[in-house]
């Protein structure tokens, strides 16, 4: 009985102490918050990095990517923006050491058309004999960069138009 009583008193005291601590802590928080509200706001709303820091980090990220020459995301070779498949390595080795990948990605042609371009580059631009790789290169180009029939004149690209309200005042 005595023990039980003691136990009850202990419980009461510890609950009371916890509550007091909680109230004290809360008060301190409130006092600190109102006292230093501006500083706290600034702390939480500060830009994550300043511009210089961001630029530094971006550069670091980019340098990592230089090491990751062959990173592929969603079927696109990130470094070049080109479609990635088993034949991509032939493009990388034979085409991109001389010109930008944009020279390829902005163009569309049939197998014959790409073949003619290769011959033109060999005749006039100093491109080497592609040997057995030529088949792989033509497979790649005619598969991923083939022409679409757009008729005698394409529609305006409605999806690409960014509609805006014209201010006429």
């Amino acid at each position: 009985m005595q023990e039980n009583n003691n136990w009850n008193t202990d419980l009461l005291w510890s609950t009371l102490l916890s509550m007091i601590s909680a109230i004290v802590l809360l008060s301190i928080t409130v006092i600190v918050y109102f006292g230093f509200r501006n500083d706290i706001d600034k702390f939480f709303n500060r830009p994550k990095y300043d511009k210089l820091e961001l630029a530094k980090r971006t550069t670091e990220r980019a340098s990592i990517q230089i090491d990751e020459w062959d990173r592929v995301e969603k079927g696109i070779h990130v470094k070049t923006g080109m479609v990635y498949d088993k034949n991509f390595k032939f493009i990388k080795a034979n085409c991109l050491s001389c010109h930008s990948s944009k020279m390829i990605t902005q163009n569309r042609a049939t197998r014959q058309g790409w073949h003619q371009m290769i011959r033109w580059m060999q005749k006039t631009q100093g491109l080497h004999d592609l040997g057995d790789s030529e088949v792989n290169i033509l497979d790649y180009l005619s598969t991923h960069y083939a022409p679409k029939d757009t008729g005698r004149r394409p529609n305006l690209d409605i999806d690409a138009i960014e509609w805006y309200v014209l201010d006429l005042n």
């Binding site: 980019a62 340098s63 990517q65 923006g81």
Partner: peptide, 14 residues
């Protein structure tokens, strides 16, 4: 996507 690679990579590779 292209620029990250090409712009930064260009001086190194080409």
């Amino acid at each position: 996507l292209q620029s990250i690679a090409l712009a930064i990579g260009a001086p190194v590779v080409y």
